[in-house]
Design a protein around this nucleic acid. Structure first.
Length: 381
RNA sequence: GGAGAGGUAGCGAAGUGGCUAAACGCGGCUGACUGUAAAUCAGCUCUCUACGAGUUCGACAGUUCGAAUCUGCCCCUCUCCA
């Protein structure tokens, strides 16, 4: 497809459009590396997918991961990352890395921040010291981090938000997007804009169209799954996707529930990231072909069968539920590692299935099969 | 045999006349978790016919309007000395 002017090394290649839905099979060309889409990106906020080595990340089949601008800015700091030669060499991971802008922290650390036109003043969650991040700062930090894909600094507003507040916020997010774009200098780093607009159709459309005018390398859909119903969540996608160009990747931020991924793929989303699989794994909840299980339950104490007999991950091939139950109860790090590996592998295999189904024009059948077969509840995990 | 310390809910441990069904920690059970302040957080954890009631703080007997808390005696544990 069309190759962006600013970043000749970055492009989205549409390989196949599903005949019965908007689902699309594609390939991201990221400065010499490729990422098949739809893709799920494990989250590695602090330059680590918690408990996994870079070897583990590669072995589970992840093709791109996330880092976080806010967290890496505080520690180890941009200077250290520059000295390290960038995040790839710092964490010894040579696959593509996408950095979130810190915009989500404007939302999640809402108690200790103040939003102004110039940027956001934060109170450090580490020591309470006052910090300030502008859209330009966010871009500069992401350049220092050396990620392959940077994200515009946006405001992820809570749900519900009034029309007036959302409108003001969208305009500010658009101005911030422009400022970030102007501040962006690296040619070996793509830059995505973020569509906000809450549940308001005209604001979603407006935000999308304005960003597209600015011509980003890709478009994120933000501000979903922040407390709204599933129905509203999916409507937000409906209000956004039609206004995004076919030749650029679409990334729904922070999504990892199985039903959410399927609904978004059906609507044409290509990229996802989520802490869900790794977080719930650390908390003992596993997604398996038999549905969701909680490994800490006593019924697994003497269950010497694999977590998921249909899974090919290191955890399922080598260890039993009884052992995982034991590791969990004893707070042994190996349990966190094995269960994180499993949940990520489960989602990555789901994405493989999705891509195969799209290639064969049977995405809708695949979606139904997954939803019926695994029996996850409406939460989607 | 002598001297001392102590026995509190599954475990550890506060409490030393009423505000105590008894702090707190651990363990156990249940639930939550979607661009990671999360190996976290929340609730429950004496019994029951459960928005109320009944039995508890080694045992028994007392003092008192009222005791896990005071007295007597008994049982048991630990430390030190013989």
């Amino acid at each position: 497809m069309i190759i962006g002017m600013k970043n000749p090394g970055f492009s989205y290649e549409l390989i196949h459009q599903d005949k019965r839905s908007k689902a699309r099979l594609g390939r991201l060309h990221v400065f010499g590396k490729t990422v098949d889409t739809p893709v799920f990106m494990p989250v590695g906020t602090q330059a680590t997918v918690k408990f996994l080595s870079s070897d583990d990340i590669r072995k589970i089949g992840a093709s791109i991961i996330l880092g976080n601008t806010y967290h890496l800015w505080l520690r180890p700091g941009p200077e250290t990352l520059i000295k390290a030669g960038g995040i790839h060499s710092f964490m010894n991971y040579d696959g593509p890395v996408l950095t979130d802008s810190g915009g989500f922290q404007v939302f999640s650390l809402a108690d200790s921040r103040k939003i102004k036109e110039e940027g956001v003043s934060f109170k450090s969650h580490l020591d309470g010291s006052r910090l300030f991040m502008s859209p330009e700062d966010s871009i500069h930090i992401q350049e220092a981090i050396g990620s392959d894909i940077a994200i515009s600094f946006d405001e992820c507003i809570p749900y519900p938000s009034s029309y007036e507040y959302t409108k003001d916020s969208v305009d500010r997010t658009l101005r911030w997007a422009k400022r970030g774009q102007d501040a962006h200098t690296r040619t070996n780093q793509a830059l995505f804009g973020v569509v906000q607009g809450s549940e308001y159709p005209d604001l979603r459309k407006y935000c999308a169209e304005k960003l597209v005018e600015m011509d980003f390398d890709g478009y994120s859909i933000g501000g979903t799954s922040v407390g709204e119903s599933k129905e509203t969540h999916y409507r937000m996608l409906d209000y956004t996707l039609p206004y995004l160009p076919e030749d650029k990747p679409r990334y729904e931020m922070g999504i990892g529930a199985i039903n959410d991924i399927l609904e978004a793929v059906e609507r044409g989303v290509d990229m996802f990231d989520c802490v869900l699989p790794t977080r719930i794994a650390r908390h003992g909840t596993l997604m398996t072909s038999q549905g969701r299980i909680n490994i800490k339950k006593n019924i697994y104490k003497d269950d010497f069968t694999p977590l998921d007999p249909e899974c090919d991950c290191e955890c399922c091939r080598n260890y039993t539920k009884a052992y995982l139950n034991h590791l969990f109860r004893n707070n042994e790090g190996l349990g966190n590692r094995l269960m994180s590996i499993h949940n990520l592998r489960f989602l990555l295999r789901l994405m493989e299935g999705i891509r195969e189904a799209i290639a064969e024009d049977r995405f809708m059948e695949y979606k139904e099969e997954i939803l019926n077969r695994y029996g996850f509840d409406e939460r989607g995990f």
